Simulated scan of single mutants.
Amino acid sequence: MTSIKEQAAISRLLSFLQEWDNAGKVARSHILDKFIETNRGKTAPELEQEFSQGASLFLVRLTTSLRITYVTDSCLEKLLRSIGIFLSAVSSNRYLIEFLEVGGVLTLLEILGLEKIKEEAKKESIKLLQVIANSGRTYKELICESYGVRSIAEFLAKSKSEETQEEVQVLLDSLVHGNPKYQNQVYKGLIALLPCESPKAQQLSLQTIRTAQSIIGTTHPSIVDCVLKVLGTMHLEVQYEDPALPSSMKPGFLQGEGPPLWGLSASSADILGRLDRWTTIQPFLLPLQPPPPVLQLRFAFPAPPRPAQPWSVKGREEDSDEWRLGSRSSLLPRWWRGLGPLTSTSALPQPSS
């Protein structure tokens, strides 16, 4: 026999579910707003207590509404946030399995590829994928098996919001760690992002490639051409990330230890080595330019303070150009000091290129 309190709680639950079933678009939006406000941050036991041990009944209605209405973007962002309350709750493994059994991952990935859906809704979809990926290796493999890497990488390249792109980077970084079966697939997807037109996507891809490279250990040959093309970008944030890549991917090559890595030809390896040396010195002057053929030097040293007594150097007056140069001869190049006394700075010889 159930107590009076339990019967009252069950009655409230049935009334709430009936209200949801009969509500229209505007009424459901208000119900979702109230649910998000009152249940954010709750654990799974607290949600069960709130819904009288029937929280799964409301989750089923949310996932069903998501699959039916996500194409029309009807309350999509609020639906995803409400589902996120269930999936991110402590001890929510039961809710996670229920969501995956109805094709939740495929629905989230399909949302990323629809152009009519707003950016904020896609951002919430990425956050749900993060929750799923952080639940364990099995769930990471499920995302990759659902062609998730391709969908996520394409969305990163097309997204116009930097905040959303950063959320995508967090997801890709999660898929690289603790996923030995598909980490190479994620690595190749990051390489494929390098030629994209979005500078932010290129920057985030380079950051994640550096992490993936340390995990995988081996380098894919296709990365060479992609990195060389990215070196010519005019975006400083990409240039900042790019110069560190060549030295990290070929540790012994620049020091002349052993043959070129990755099976590169000598010419390609030489180009990559020279680019690495230049970008170490001038990381923000890309595309690289060769030095000028003739180096024009012209020195103008400030005159020293006048001494108490008049001086002379080699019998000349203190105001002569040679006195100014002779008193600071230690600052001049070695080949210059061997030329003897000079009468004017305009007559200085020009070094050969």
Score class of each variant (00 low, 15 high):
146 S>C: 06
88 S>W: 00
305 P>E: 12
325 L>F: 07
103 G>R: 05
42 K>A: 07
257 E>K: 15
125 S>M: 01
202 Q>H: 04
348 L>H: 07
186 V>T: 10
9 A>W: 02
126 I>V: 15
233 T>R: 08
101 E>K: 12
87 L>A: 09
146 S>F: 04
107 T>E: 02
253 F>G: 06
18 Q>G: 12
52 S>N: 15
235 H>R: 12
232 G>Y: 09
311 W>T: 07
286 L>S: 13
351 P>E: 12
84 G>M: 03
329 S>F: 01
44 A>L: 00
218 T>M: 05
59 L>N: 00
298 R>Q: 10
336 W>A: 11
288 L>F: 12
90 V>T: 13
225 D>R: 14
46 E>I: 01
20 W>H: 12
301 F>T: 04
73 D>A: 10
313 V>R: 02
313 V>L: 13
108 L>F: 03
139 Y>P: 00
330 S>Y: 06
327 S>I: 11
193 L>D: 04
213 Q>F: 09
320 S>V: 09
319 D>P: 00
173 D>K: 12
317 E>P: 00
105 V>Y: 02
265 S>H: 11
140 K>V: 06
58 F>Y: 12
294 V>M: 12
20 W>F: 15
246 P>H: 05
18 Q>S: 15
286 L>Y: 03
136 G>D: 13
326 G>D: 07
3 S>E: 07
285 L>V: 05
234 M>T: 15
286 L>V: 12
84 G>W: 05
205 S>P: 02
163 E>Q: 11
303 A>G: 03
204 L>N: 10
337 R>K: 14
35 F>H: 11
87 L>D: 06
86 F>V: 06
83 I>Y: 01
125 S>Y: 02
79 L>Q: 09
258 G>N: 07
342 L>P: 00
111 I>G: 09
166 E>W: 00
75 C>Q: 14
9 A>C: 08
4 I>M: 10
315 G>Q: 00
15 S>C: 09
157 A>L: 05
9 A>Q: 14
192 A>L: 13
276 D>I: 04
130 Q>F: 08
316 R>Q: 13
34 K>F: 08
327 S>Q: 14
296 Q>N: 13
35 F>N: 08
